[in-house]
């Protein structure tokens, strides 16, 4: 039974490709939707020229910068808003505004105010993600165990020790949830940012091949980055989550 459950994701992926092949056969036009194997030649070509790795690297760098900045600022803001009701009352309207501000508006405004620069691109993505991280972490901060706080106070634990060993482990599920949803959302926004105002990255390449109506190349770039994000999920996020949850096992 365990072997079967391990095979389930593979069966699911096979189902995805099966559906793709059916749709491609139904459209009967490689210009609109090519069969999966027809992507291999352009993939080899982009790999050989070095273009694919260059643009994947540029996108990944932007994703990592925006992710780290958004997580750090969102964590700090969520924590203080969850613990200090007066500060929550003060900042909550800002949070609602930024939560409801369309990503596109922020991106365009950052480009208009700062210019078509790397800083503007990363800032736009970061500002888009901070409100989501803050909202999730604020819920976690509100649910912190008061008894553990009392224990840390009585035993005079330093602020840094409390943060590391009492507060952050309680926030771990909230951090993991916001990180997982964050990385998925961030890379999609990074693509829009690159589409609108950068001269490198997967988004820029998609823009280029959109103008050329080259669906195969668009799929090559999009699927390549999805593969990278799957590797990040399987090799980094999931092992980290398992490590932080190991105390829960009996």
């Amino acid at each position: 039974m365990q072997d079967l459950s391990r095979l389930t994701p593979l069966v699911s992926i096979a189902g995805f490709f099966g559906l793709w092949m059916l749709a491609a056969a139904f459209s009967d036009d490689p210009q609109i939707l090519p069969q999966p194997w027809l992507l291999l030649a352009p993939l080899r070509q982009e790999l050989a020229s070095g273009e694919l790795l260059f643009h994947l690297g540029a996108t990944l760098r932007r994703v990592l910068w925006a992710f780290c900045l958004a997580m750090a600022v969102g964590l700090a803001l969520g924590l203080i808003m969850g613990r200090r009701p007066w500060l929550n009352r003060l900042l909550d309207p800002w949070l609602v505004i930024f939560l409801n501000l369309p990503a596109l508006v922020l991106i365009v405004l950052c480009y208009l105010w700062i210019g078509l620069t790397e800083t503007a691109a990363i800032l736009a993505v970061t500002l888009n993600k901070i409100p989501n991280v803050t909202t999730v972490i604020r819920e976690g901060a509100r649910a912190l165990d008061p008894q553990l706080a009392a224990m840390a106070q009585v035993y005079r634990m330093s602020w840094l020790l409390r943060l590391r060993h009492v507060i952050l482990p309680q926030l771990a599920p909230f951090i993991a949830a916001s990180a997982r949803s964050g990385i998925a959302v961030i890379w999609k926004i990074v693509l829009v940012v690159e589409f609108l105002g950068r001269s490198s990255g997967v988004g820029f390449q998609i823009h280029l091949y959109f103008q050329l109506f080259d669906v195969a190349m668009i799929l090559v770039y999009a699927l390549s980055f999805i593969c990278i994000m799957l590797l990040v999920e399987w090799l980094l996020l999931q092992p980290l989550e398992r490590h932080s949850h190991r105390w829960r096992s009996p």
């Binding site: 009392a150 224990m151 035993y155 634990m157 060993h165 932080s244 105390w247």
Partner: peptide, 25 residues
Amino acid sequence: MSFIFQEPTLLPWRSALDNLCLVHS
């Protein structure tokens, strides 16, 4: 000062040894 609470109030994500060494640095 030491306090023994109604519930054990331990750090569940740290080992028994760390519950002593981390709380009392």
